[in-house]
Design a protein around this nucleic acid. Sequence first.
DNA 1: AATATTAGCGGACTATAGTCCACTTGTCAA
DNA 2: TTGACAAGTGGACTATAGTCCGCTAATATT
Lengths: 212, 212
Amino acid sequence: MERIELEPMGAERSGGRTERADAAANRALILCTAERLFRERGVENVCMAEIAEVAGVGKGTLYRRYANKGELCLALMDTQMTEFQDSSLTLFSGLTAQGVPYLEQLARFLRSLVEFTDIHSPLLVEVERAGMIQGVDRLNLPHFWQYMTVSALLRAAERNGELAANLDLEYLGEALLAPLQVDYFRFQRYVRGYSIERIGEGLRALVERLGA
Amino acid sequence: MERIELEPMGAERSGGRTERADAAANRALILCTAERLFRERGVENVCMAEIAEVAGVGKGTLYRRYANKGELCLALMDTQMTEFQDSSLTLFSGLTAQGVPYLEQLARFLRSLVEFTDIHSPLLVEVERAGMIQGVDRLNLPHFWQYMTVSALLRAAERNGELAANLDLEYLGEALLAPLQVDYFRFQRYVRGYSIERIGEGLRALVERLGA
DNA sequence: AATATTAGCGGACTATAGTCCACTTGTCAA
DNA sequence: TTGACAAGTGGACTATAGTCCGCTAATATT
């Protein structure tokens, strides 16, 4: 498994020249302002216009950098997502070396994903909403790498003879991640009242049933 | 299993007296107008203001009947949802009488739910979106009865000794329905390009793995 | 250093959901 | 029949996301 590039709008542009100095300063200012406002008053209670105003830039400037609130939120999570990804990969290497089955690794990955989703759900809500709004064709970055990880583990488990026969692994990866869609996840947490542990255990049970 | 009341804002009010005649006429007019506009131009391209305007009523009137676009869409699906529910229940009685295992019934139910979701996804998108917007506390009617059905079948399967031990049935019901959340479902259909058959089979495989 | 190129900027503008409230009218009870 | 009042109505208003486009100025080229 390989690290997935998580910085679609990072400072080093794919296109060509480096970011202009004033633009870089504004980017930092915007991120910093957004982070503060979100922390003080909650993500859902802060609108884009306000972020621009408090940061002292025009709305056009804000939207040039971040095409919507979701992208901005994604940028704020960037570091933590990368760290989560890296630490997961490191962990897996270790577990594989110890001979821990891939299905077990999958169960643990899902469990830590439950925690990640819980912690970042306010930002993730915006990311998903934006992904939806831009039409179904735009993919959602967090989901993308989560899917890559899950499906890689499923394939490894199959190669390793841990899985029951005739499973549609490609679809299965999606089905296992479906309960982690943020809106649904929040419903389970705050309406159903399920704890993180219960959700993690439920997913573990499902994963275990896939065994031969 | 019992039929679930699907008409939260039907003509016969739970509270008391009958709907005023002029209001009833407007309700019909609104539904009829919305149905036509949605059919002609697509649900997502028709806004509430336009429906009110074309129907010749004020926005206030429209919103008094349907607190948001989701409720309006739900009202438009009302008949079909009821029919789907009734025919599912009838079908189950027959299958149970024939001795078809409950897990098999569950797999078939999910399969028909996949079709239902696919057909009504444009309206369901609005229903779910509205459910989300009104805060996590408002429950989503279609999901509610779907969950009732799934969890009843799971419990029946358990009583009947069809299930593996120590499963968290309550959670499992949610997990099985998660891939049918409309936004996620559309992602699978139109981005991943999965067919209805493939999704149905995927869910069937998952259900079958729950067996003892 | 002068100039051209083009990224960057800002804020007015549109679109849409949904709220509010003063006004109107149907319904029921006397 | 009539009057009270709850139900119903309409449209102005707010809030917010996101677009557009003419102006400005940083950077590259000469």
